[in-house]
C-alpha cells in the first residue's frame, strides 16, 4: 500500500471523522521504516504508479502492532470500568 492509499484508507476507516494529513503521514512512515515496523515493497502490479513507494508491515511491525493494540485495549477497558465512557456506570 502506498502513502496516499493509506490516507484514503484511514479516512474510510474513521468515516471521515479524522484526517491524516500528508506531513504527519510521511514523517511517520519514515520513522516506521527506520525502526523496522514497515519496509518498502515492490509495486503490487505492473499498472501501478512506479513513482510511489509501497510499504508492507514487517513481522516485527506485526508484533509491535499486536502489543500496542493490547496495551490500548487495556487502557480502554480501564476507561470503561472507571466510567469515563459516556452511558456506562463506573464501578
Amino acid at each position: 500500500m502506498h502513502g496516499y492509499a493509506l490516507m484514503q484508507s484511514f479516512r474510510e476507516m474513521t468515516e471521515g471523522s479524522d484526517v491524516l494529513l500528508p506531513g504527519a503521514l510521511y514523517a511517520t512512515l519514515a520513522r516506521m521504516v527506520e525502526t523496522g515496523l514497515l519496509e518498502e515493497a515492490p509495486p503490487p502490479g505492473t499498472g501501478e504508479d512506479r513513482r510511489r513507494r509501497y510499504y508492507r508491515v514487517t513481522p516485527r511491525g506485526k508484533r509491535v502492532g499486536a502489543l500496542e493494540s493490547a496495551r490500548l485495549g487495556r487502557l480502554l477497558d480501564l476507561a470503561h470500568r472507571r466510567g469515563f465512557v459516556p452511558g456506562e456506570a463506573g464501578s
Binding site: H2, Y4, Q8, P22, G23, Y26, A30, R53
Partner: peptide, 20 residues
C-alpha cells in the same frame, strides 16, 4: 527528497478530489 513529491501529490489529490 524521499517523500516531498509524494506528499505534494497526495496533498493535491486530496485538494482536487475534494475529500480532504
Amino acid at each position: 527528497r524521499a517523500f516531498g513529491d509524494e506528499a505534494r501529490e497526495a496533498f493535491m489529490a486530496d485538494l482536487l478530489g475534494g475529500q480532504g
